[in-house]
Every structure is written in C-alpha cells, then in structure tokens.
Nucleic acid binder design. Sequence first.
DNA 1: TCGTCGATGGAACAACAGTTCCGATCATAC
DNA 2: GTATGATCGGAACTGTTGTTCCATCGACGA
Lengths: 280, 280
Amino acid sequence: MEAADRIGQASASLTPAERRVAEVVLEHPQLVAFGTVADLAEQSGSGAATVVRLATKLGFDGFTALQASVQHDLARQLRPAAERIREPAATDAIANHLSLELDNVRATLSSLDGGALSDVVSHLADVGRRVFVLSGDASQGVAAQLVADLSALRDRVLRIGGNDVAVRRQVALLEPADVVLMLDLRRYDRWVIDAAREARRVGVWAVAVTDSLLSPLAAVADRTLVVAAAGGGPFDSHVGTLALFNLLVAGVADRLRTAVTDRLDRAEAAWQGSGSLSDR
Amino acid sequence: MEAADRIGQASASLTPAERRVAEVVLEHPQLVAFGTVADLAEQSGSGAATVVRLATKLGFDGFTALQASVQHDLARQLRPAAERIREPAATDAIANHLSLELDNVRATLSSLDGGALSDVVSHLADVGRRVFVLSGDASQGVAAQLVADLSALRDRVLRIGGNDVAVRRQVALLEPADVVLMLDLRRYDRWVIDAAREARRVGVWAVAVTDSLLSPLAAVADRTLVVAAAGGGPFDSHVGTLALFNLLVAGVADRLRTAVTDRLDRAEAAWQGSGSLSDR
DNA sequence: TCGTCGATGGAACAACAGTTCCGATCATAC
DNA sequence: GTATGATCGGAACTGTTGTTCCATCGACGA
C-alpha cells in the first residue's frame, strides 16, 4: 500500500498532530477514501490544515492525491479475489498457513470444556500454591511466555528447566500443595515425562497441555487440555497453545482482579518513574 | 445492496439513457463510490442531469445519497471480519477469546505483502549472515521460540538480551553483514528502541515486527511486518506474531531444504541413539 | 405537416471541499 | 525571563462538484 509505506518511511519526521492523523489513515482507510479533509481532521482531533500538511509531507500533491492513492488500494483490495491470486507467488504459502493456523486456534479453543478451564484457572490463581511450568524443548518459548505473563499477575510462578540435574532437584523439592503445568507434544521429551511422573508421585495437582488424551502427560495429570498444533513447516505450531495460554492468563487476571490491578499499577509506576517505556 | 435492489425494482420504468447509467452503477460500483457525477455521465455516455435523475428515481435524495449508499456497501464488503465479528461480543469468555485470536491471526497474515515476506525470508535464510533477534520484555517468549526454531534450521542465530551492559556490548559488536529482527509492541521498551537505533547506525539489515507502521522500530527498519495483537486479558496477544514467525520459519526451511534435512537427520539420529524422545 | 410531450444534455448556480495564509500557542534554548 | 522557532488550527480563498433549469431533439398522434 503506497500511503502506508510512505507513512512508515516518514514516521520519524512527523509532528504529534500529524502522527494522530497518520494513525487514523492507517486504521480507517475508508475514512480517507470516502471522507473529506474535515472528516479526517475531526476524527483525529486536529485541524484541516494538518491533514493537508501530512499529505504533502508524505510526498503526495495535496490531500486529493493521497485520497486517490488510498482509493486505488481499496479498489484493488475488493477485487473478487480471483484477480488478486496471481499477484505474488507467495500468496499460496500465506493462504495455506493462514487456514492452518486458524484451524489450530479454532480447534484448540472450541474443544475446550468450560468446567475444566475454570478448574485450571482456579488452581493457577490460587496464590497459596506455587505454580511450576514444565515444558518440552520444542515449546520452551511459549512456556516462557506463559511464565512471564503469570508472573506479572502473581508471585511464585517458576519454570522447571536447565540441565538434568537441576530438573531432578526442582522436582524433588515439589510439595503436595504445589501446582504444575506440563506442556509437551508428540515425540515427547523423555525427561519431561520422567519429571511429570515424579511430580505425580509427590502428589502435586497437575494439568497437562498436550496434543492428545492418549499422551503420557495426560495419564499423570488431574486435568488435560488438548491443543491442535498442525504446522506448515518442519515443526509443530504452538499458535493454538499460545491462544490457550492467553485464555488462562486472562482467567487468572479476572480471578485476582483487585490484587492484579494493584500489582500492575505498581509496575506501571516503576516504569513511569524510570521512563523505560515509550509510546513512540 | 441497497442501490442494486432499487435498480432491479425500478428497472421497468427506466429510460434508455438512465438504463445505461444503471448498468455502469451495477458493473463499476467503485466509479460511483469514488467518482463524480461527471465521471458516471462520461462512462455511460450520458449527461450529468441523467445521472442525478436516475438517483432520484431510485428513491435517493440526489446523487450524494446514492453515492453514500454504495460507499456503505463497499465499506462493509472491505471488512470480512475485523469489525463484523467484534459486534457479538460479551457472550462467554472462550468465544470472545476465540474470535479475538482468530482476528489476530487473520489480520496479521492477510495484511502481509508477498514481496516483503520473501525478502525477509531470504535474509533469514542467508547462512552467510548472522541473525540476531531483539525483543521487548513482553514478547521474550515468542522471540525465544523463533530463535529456537531458526536455530534448528541454521547456525548463528542469536538472541540479544540480558542486562543493559550485555545488550550494549552485543549491539556494538554487530557487523554490516548481519541481519537483525526487532520485535516490540506499543509501550515500546526504551532499551529496545535504543538498541535498534544503534543497530541501524551500524548498518545491519533490519526487519521490524511491530504493531504499527508508526512504531519507532519501523522507522529504523529496512522492512516492517505489522502484526495484530488485540488481547482479551491484561496483556497483548502474541498469537498473530507467532503465526507470522511460523510462516517465516517454514519459508527459511523451504529455502534451505537440502541443508535442513541433513541437519534434522543428524539431530534425529542423536535423539534416537540416546532414547531421549518417546512416541508414547 | 404541425403540435405536444417526454427525454436528454448543456449551462448556470449554489454549496461544498481543498488549499493557503496568518496569528496564536507552546516548547526550548540562551 | 525573554526570544526564537516550530507547531497548530481557524478563516479566507479558490477550484470543484452536485443540483437545477431550460433549450433542443425525437417520437407520436391529430
């Protein structure tokens, strides 16, 4: 998209008001294509002059040229898709992945049982219990994402990992009141299964996030959440798993609402004070 | 479609010239939505007055009303999902998250430009270059997932992170032939922006994965991939980002096919030998 | 053949929208 | 604290566009 590209190019040299207009252009292209300068100005809380200035700054010959460009893009976008297909050769791969990942998310979330979900959330939101996350090697990233998000909401969320010795020590130190979330997909990591069995022996409450109810993790878990992980490349896709984790995190945040807002406010204050976050 | 319906309704009572205009309206709606009375008149070989007369005869309050109706239809057609799905919210948490995450995946992958994608994949698949991944704190997990997957396909994939001192050292040691992938969403981490700017100064080829073309990362990147990250909980969702990463990984695997199969075979042999993986 | 009526497009008009200019305001630096 | 510069929005201006009016053309009937 011509206009979008130019906005990205010039984003560094935009004034605050121009930036507000540019955001509206990116988010509501129809407003540019169908609307007027005044409409854009109102929507972005700026003046008409600023809108025109942005258009010229982007290299267009006035607002009219910018509008024509956006109209052109929009018209191309709503061609009956039959014509769109032949444009880039890569479209096939994109469309293929798109349907694959959509299926993963859909299958994972819609096969979810409400009762099981709220049971898992309850355990994860129980601040009296420690939460441990155990993940196979291939899913370390999403596991880390879960641990990070949960840690922002509550204390004592820990990842079991490192070398074999460290894992054995961490598992040995589990207590019956703890909660452990175990994540692994087919071609299960031996050490994960071993750790899971040992955890079960200790008597902790365990939830398995895995690809089948026949998984060895499901056998030793109190609850099992099944994820779809069909991948278009050489590896499994953890998109569905991550969507599930987001749902769990949102659930925990909801249960701990008052405590969470307090935690997040304090973190926010710390960030504000140090200026370590930036809106732009 | 309102206008089309009314044309069908009134088709019997249309004069020859009006009929020509009506045909243009049906076949080239963009001309009505984006064009003027004069454009329509010229295209249909009639006069401006005839165009206006048709509009009023169809029950519209002048051409402007007809145009607004066509624009409305086109705008609705342009958004297959984005705003249509958001309407029936507030049902239950699972369905809400489901539509949200589906939108994230859909918006992220379908807004992708085939050319940009293959350019990024080419750089990531260039084994002559080192690949560095730089990520904001909130997305460390998915970044780690990308690094792990890429590392399985090729050597010299490294994550820039750790404490501030370590980051500065790693960035300072970048070379012009390197490739850096920068990932961060709104409320950008100051240190990520600083590191990205420094990397740009060094002259490395950079791709930004971020939430807007107005992101500070986009300003210093050679390519920018925009992701949708609407979250149902307190945090952003990285589901769309992970889907995009899967696509990148699959692309890299495809480019390096022969080398990759060899690598994976050797890893497979190692796992087989040690029995560290299990089917059940 | 002439007159009447509907159809049609060109031209005038009025409203609107894009552009430009300028004064006010804010931030910044000295 | 003052001065300078950038930034911004309101208002005048000008070009464009939708609308309306009217002269012309053609068909049909007397």
